[in-house]
Amino acid sequence: MFNQSDYDESCNESYCSYGDIDIVEPCSHQNNHSVALVIGPYVHSIICILGLVGNILVIVTYAFYKRTKSMTDIYLLNVAISDLLFVVSLPLIVYNELSAWPMGPVACKLLRGSYSVNLYSGMLLLACISTDRYIAIVQARRSFRLRSLQYSRVICAIVWVVALLLSIPSFYFYTWYEPSHTKSFFMIEEEESLDSGPPQYVCEFMFMDTNTAWKTKVAVPSTQLAVGFFLPLLIMVFCYSAVIVTLLKARNFQRHKAVRVVLVVVAVFIICHLPYNVTLLYDTVHMFKEQSCEAAEALQISKTVTQTIAYLHCCLNPVLYAFVGVKFRNHFRRIVQDLWCLGKKYIAPRRFSRVTSEMYVSTRRSVDGSSENGSSFTM
């Protein structure tokens, strides 16, 4: 308990001195908050809409129009499911970062844990796709033996289990609690100040001791950097480099066109994820070092912006890995045609019933009778 007679008070904007006690006001990060207020509601909303539409189309295509007949199809379907789960949880993550978390401890752990699972599974599945392309093109003689549906299902199950295991710290340490800086606990002359409003709970990391906090706050981003970025990047660079060399030896226009597709896939991956992971690496290295408010705020703004750029990749995955294939685009056109025919059938049934029925039946026949040789990721 503090008494007024113990202190001679003197203050400026961010520093107060009460006798022998120095109190430093925490950094406000107002600029980062302003950036987050723009990016959170608007940019992330666009990412959610595009990600939902693209990945739902991929899942619908595999569910109703194209069966999973190759290893690549299995990988693409799992990538779409992972990205879809991510964009569904993204609005809640943005809401948690901008305001208090009202949904309780169970939802907090599920949200943060599922985010981590989707991050690891999505990145590892992209590495699996690049390995599959390497086997199909560079190791063509072995591809029929190595690229079976049984192997692909086992590999996807392993990927999801590994992602779940790597996400255990997120499930365990993310907690719903009221941070101490939201409480008014400084007492003068034995009078407690009243809280300005209802408790403001957050969904963030919470640790019981300093040693655990130190290890976990270094281990979690380090694992994310190693397994969630550098490992997939190395696999993609190795596999696609060998694929490009093999394709360049083939004197064929379509093969050279495929080289450009591969370069775009790698370039988009690097452009989306490299800035954020470099920022995360810098933040991890300097996590426990003293920084000025200006430097800390600049780092937070960089993380906010580069993380949003990384989120864009979930919108681009359907375009890069699915719709780039000719056969997949044909299935997408059939989806649009069927939706158009069904729409006209319900809007004007008397006028268009016969025409729409014939068009719908013919469309379904063309879908069922279409050949499905090769994978949807046509090179």
Rank of each mutant, 00 (worst) to 15 (best):
H29N: 09
H29D: 08
Q30N: 12
N32M: 13
H33P: 06
H33N: 14
S34I: 13
S34Q: 14
L37A: 09
V43C: 10
V43A: 11
I46T: 12
I46A: 14
I47K: 03
I47F: 03
C48A: 11
I49C: 04
G51C: 01
G51R: 02
L52T: 14
L52W: 10
V53D: 05
G54E: 03
N55G: 07
N55L: 00
I56F: 09
I56N: 07
L57C: 12
L57W: 05
L57K: 00
V58Y: 04
V58R: 01
V58T: 02
I59Y: 10
V60T: 14
Y62R: 06
A63C: 13
Y65L: 15
Y65V: 07
Y65F: 15
Y65M: 11
K66L: 15
K66T: 06
T68Y: 07
T72L: 09
T72D: 10
D73A: 07
I74S: 07
Y75W: 14
L76V: 01
L77C: 14
A80C: 09
I81N: 08
I81Q: 08
S82R: 00
S82H: 01
L85N: 11
F86T: 01
F86H: 08
F86S: 07
V87S: 02
V88F: 08
S89V: 15
L90E: 02
P91H: 04
P91I: 03
L92M: 11
I93T: 13
I93A: 09
Y95W: 13
Y95K: 08
Y95A: 11
N96E: 13
N96M: 14
E97I: 02
A100T: 13
W101A: 04
W101Y: 02
P102S: 01
P102T: 05
M103P: 06
M103H: 15
G104Q: 00
K109C: 00
K109R: 11
L110W: 07
S114V: 15
S114K: 06
S116T: 04
S116V: 00
S116P: 03
N118D: 13
S121R: 01
G122P: 00
G122E: 03
G122R: 03
M123C: 12
M123Y: 05
L124G: 09
L124H: 06
L125Q: 07
L125V: 11
L126H: 09
C128A: 12
I129G: 00
I129R: 05
S130D: 09
T131M: 14
R133L: 05
R133T: 01
I135L: 07
